[in-house]
Structures are given as C-alpha cells and as structure tokens.
C-alpha cells in the first residue's frame, strides 16, 4: 500500500474513533440530562398538584375571616357607637382607627377619642389582655407574649399621676403607735 493510502486510512480511523468516543460520551450526558429532567418533571407535577387547592382554600379562609371581622366591627359599632368603637380600636391598636371600619365609610372621618377618656383602666386592661393573650404563635407553649413597650408604658401614659411616675411627691404613710411623732387624740365614739 502506498504511503498516502496509509495516511488516509489512519486519518479515517482516527476520525471514526473520535466520532465514536465523543458521540457515546454525548449520549451518556444526554441520558443523564433526561433522567434529571424526568425527576424535575415529576417534582414539578407534585408542586402543581399540591399547590392546586391553595388558592381556593386561602380565598375561602379570607372570605370567612372578612365576614367575621365585618360582623364583629358591626357589633362593636352597634353596642359602643361609632366614636367609642373607634376609640377602643385606637386604644388597643394605636393608629388603627385611621383605617376605619370596612363596612362603615364614615368611620374614616370620625375622630377617635382617647380611650382613657371613655373607658376605665380595667376595660383597657381587659382589652389589652385579650390582644396579648398567649395565643401568639411565637410561644404556643410558653408564657403569655406581651408587648413590653406598650403593655405597661401605655397604661403609665394614660395615668401619669400615680405612684410609679412621681413617687417622691406622694405623702408618706403616717406612723402610728404610742411613740409616733404625731399623737392623734382618741376618737369620741
């Protein structure tokens, strides 16, 4: 065989070997891709199946919660009156009265009174306890979650003249007994 024929034969063999090697490797890679894509498609199918009812469920929950809020707001307005209802909401959720009640358009223009001017401290405390009851998800098994900046401070702000703000100005308790500096005359019954 002449030398050019040998060179030609070698070249062809090398090209064929290169084709075989690279094509086989490419086929292996493509099969890996197909396998991974099959897993992906299965997982995406699960995602679609699992997330399918989420929208309807959330919309249903929202609708029921909205109906509950509307009913409670209506009851509050009916029982307390628009102005006092806004005052109670403002006292429990500072700033919330600006949004008003959803079924009462005029609530956005009604001026909310200061809660301390309408309700006693006990009512405010009860309302606050209701808001900060231990139903918070942060500590379902722990103690009640309380807002440290609002729960006590807001009450102090409402009643600034009690002992915890100016204890030095309160009169001291009287000393009683036979050796007290001030002897009170025995009362005549």
């Amino acid at each position: 065989m002449p030398a050019p024929g040998v060179i030609l034969l070698v070249a062809v063999v090398l090209i064929v070997l290169a084709l075989v090697y690279h094509l086989v490797m490419t086929i292996v890679a493509l099969r890996q891709i197909v396998a991974a894509l099959d897993e992906t498609i299965a997982a995406v199918g699960e995602i679609i199946a699992k997330s399918g009812p989420v929208n309807d469920v959330v919309l249903t929950i929202n609708a029921h919660l909205g109906a509950g809020v509307s009913a409670l707001e209506g009851l509050l307005v009916k029982k307390a009156g628009m102005r006092d209802a806004l005052g109670l909401v403002e006292g429990v959720y500072p700033g919330a009265s600006a949004a008003g009640f959803r079924d009462f358009p005029d609530s956005t223009t009604t001026k909310a009174p200061r809660i301390s001017e309408v309700y006693t401290r006990g009512v405010l405390t009860l309302a606050r306890l209701g808001r900060e009851a231990p139903i918070a998800a942060a500590s379902p098994d722990g103690p009640a979650v309380r807002n440290a900046t609002r729960s006590a401070k807001s009450a102090m702000d409402l009643y600034p003249d009690v002992r915890h703000t100016r204890p030095e100005k309160l009169p001291r308790s009287p000393v009683i007994g036979t050796d007290s500096p001030v002897q009170y005359p025995e009362g005549v019954l």
Partner: peptide, 10 residues
C-alpha cells in the same frame, strides 16, 4: 493530489 488529500484529512 492523493498526498495532499490524505494530509489535509489527517
């Protein structure tokens, strides 16, 4: 040409 073709191929 046979030479050239073989070498070009290789």
């Amino acid at each position: 040409l046979y030479w050239i073709g073989s070498l070009v191929l290789l």
